[in-house]
């Protein structure tokens, strides 16, 4: 017999899966009939009595909302199929692959009626423009109307600048150095072969902190304090600190490696699905 806690967890997972599925149908123009609406409604109905906290009810509402969007797409699909403009995309693709450029052009010219438009200055508009120019005051006179504001100058203390977030309480280089030391310690403790999975290093309790750590890590890599090892087939990225900073500028072709630090990726890492 399933405990209530387990049942709630299962239900949440199912709803999240449904939301993801609906999202991918919407975003990637997949066939909306891939989703069995009745089955989804049954799942929503089945777990609805279990929801107690507002977060779970929000998840339930989002599932219904996403499902409604899919139903709308299904209705549009049916409408489109019933119009005279409906063509089987595979049939058309097949056709386009077989016919030559000249034939396509021949067909296109029969359906293309380009817009006719002219861009020409008239005597009237020249006369108007000249009148405007005559009445236009020189820049010197126009700018007189806007006297420059006077500012009082003074001095600001370091604490005030930190408060206004112009300066950080630690110097950037100092912060970077500490971050490098932290990376080395973490690799010693949890790493393997002198490296650690990228997300295990930059990932933090909050998304904001994760972004900050990813930002700092990018500086360490750019300045030669660490390097990245990317295994595209395994979809794994490792970060490896150097013992001493190295400079590669001028010696080797530098490459940029974009890593998306999105909330989705962060959530995946939290769930243990991302390294």
């Amino acid at each position: 017999m399933q405990s209530k806690r387990e049942r709630i967890r299962n239900g949440k997972e199912k709803l999240q899966r449904i939301i993801e599925m609906c999202k991918s149908v919407e975003e990637h123009s997949l066939d909306p009939f891939l989703i069995d609406v009745n089955e989804v409604i049954n799942v929503i109905k089945e777990y609805f009595p279990d929801w107690e906290v507002p977060e779970d009810l929000c998840l339930d509402a989002e599932t219904v909302h996403r499902l409604a969007s899919v139903i709308k797409l299904q209705s549009e699909w049916v409408k489109h199929r019933s119009t005279s403009l409906y063509t089987d995309p595979f049939l058309l693709e097949e056709k386009l692959a077989r016919i030559g450029k000249e034939e396509i052009i021949e067909v296109f010219f029969k359906a293309w009626h380009p817009i006719v438009e002219l861009e020409q200055i008239s005597l009237h508009s020249i006369a108007e423009a000249m009148k405007y120019w005559e009445n236009l005051l020189p820049l010197k006179e126009r700018w007189k109307e806007f006297p420059t504001a006077e500012f009082e100058t003074g001095t600001a203390t370091r604490d005030e600048l930190v408060k206004q977030k112009i300066l950080r309480d630690k110097a950037f280089s100092e912060e970077l150095e500490n971050f490098w030391q932290e990376m080395k310690t973490k690799v010693k403790e949890k790493g393997d072969d002198g490296k650690i999975p990228y997300w295990d290093f930059v990932g933090a309790e909050t998304y904001e902190e994760t972004v900050h750590r990813a930002f700092m890590a990018s500086f360490l890599i750019t300045y030669g304090y660490a390097t990245l090892e990317v295994y595209p087939l395994e979809e794994e990225i490792f970060i490896k600190p150097y013992d001493k900073p190295t400079t590669k500028i001028g010696k080797k072709q530098l490459v940029s490696i974009p890593i998306a630090v999105t909330t989705d990726n962060w959530m995946k890492w939290k769930r243990g699905e991302l390294k």
């Binding site: 975003e27 123009s29 005279s84 403009l85 063509t87 049939l91 058309l92 056709k95 386009l96 077989r98 016919i99 030559g100 034939e103 396509i104 021949e106 067909v107 296109f108 029969k110 359906a111 293309w112 009626h113 380009p114 817009i115």
Partner: peptide, 30 residues
Amino acid sequence: ENEQLYLDWRTRAEIDQKALIDLLLGTEAK
């Protein structure tokens, strides 16, 4: 923003969409 392409105003003004599809489907490859 999802890199999906749609038909825009000039296509609607200049192209007889139904004629284009009908003609394309009716064309035989030379």
